[in-house]
Simulated scan of single mutants.
Amino acid sequence: MESLQTADVTALIMESYELSTMINQSREVSEYLQAKQAMEEDAEVQRLLSLFEKKKEQYEDVQRFGKYHPDFNHISKEVRELKRTIELMDSVQAFKRAEERLDELLYQVSRTIADAVSETIKVPSNNPFLEAKSSGCGTGGSCGCSVKKH
């Protein structure tokens, strides 16, 4: 029988620093930071985000009364339209795409580490399709991923 060796925690932490350095030097991080800076320097995006914050406060005020507030429909529509306008801005779309690519990289690294330990370890992701492709729900629910059959 093979004896188990425990990992040297210090070595493990040092390796994790190397991995984080590699990730920080990746194309995905570089593109993310460039896209974030471009979005932050986009005057129109910043103007609309500021306006959105004000509209969101108005929306929260009318939310207390719900559909019975006289301005509920008007404010709700303005917030939705403004959000959509912001989402369609080129610099915002570029940022979202770069963010998704970085999230995918981080998920794949996390998934690789988790799978090396056990395929049943859950790895959170901002992308529900990635989580669905992983090792099941992990809750033992209707998918049966962790339910033992007797």
Rank of each mutant, 00 (worst) to 15 (best):
M1G: 12
E2R: 15
Q5I: 00
D8I: 11
D8M: 08
D8P: 10
T10D: 05
T10G: 10
I13D: 03
I13T: 03
M14D: 12
E15C: 02
S16Y: 07
S16T: 04
L19V: 03
N24F: 11
S26E: 11
E28N: 15
V29I: 11
E31V: 04
L33Q: 03
Q34S: 10
K36M: 01
A38V: 13
M39C: 11
D42A: 00
A43L: 13
L49V: 14
L51V: 13
F52L: 09
F52Y: 10
E57M: 09
E57S: 12
V62T: 06
R64E: 10
F65Q: 10
F65E: 03
Y68I: 13
H69N: 08
H69R: 00
P70S: 12
S76D: 06
K77T: 12
K77A: 05
E78M: 03
V79L: 03
E81M: 07
L82V: 09
R84M: 11
E87K: 13
Q93H: 14
A94V: 08
F95I: 00
F95P: 00
K96A: 03
E100C: 05
R101Y: 10
E104Q: 06
E104L: 00
Y107V: 08
Y107D: 03
Q108G: 08
V109I: 05
T112F: 03
I113C: 01
I113M: 09
A114F: 12
D115N: 13
A116G: 14
V117N: 01
S118E: 04
S118F: 07
E119M: 09
I121D: 01
N127Q: 04
L130K: 09
A132R: 14
S134A: 04
S135N: 08
G136F: 07
G136P: 04
C137P: 13
T139C: 04
G140E: 14
G141R: 05
C143A: 08
G144I: 11
S146Q: 11
V147C: 04
V147L: 14
K148D: 10
K149V: 15
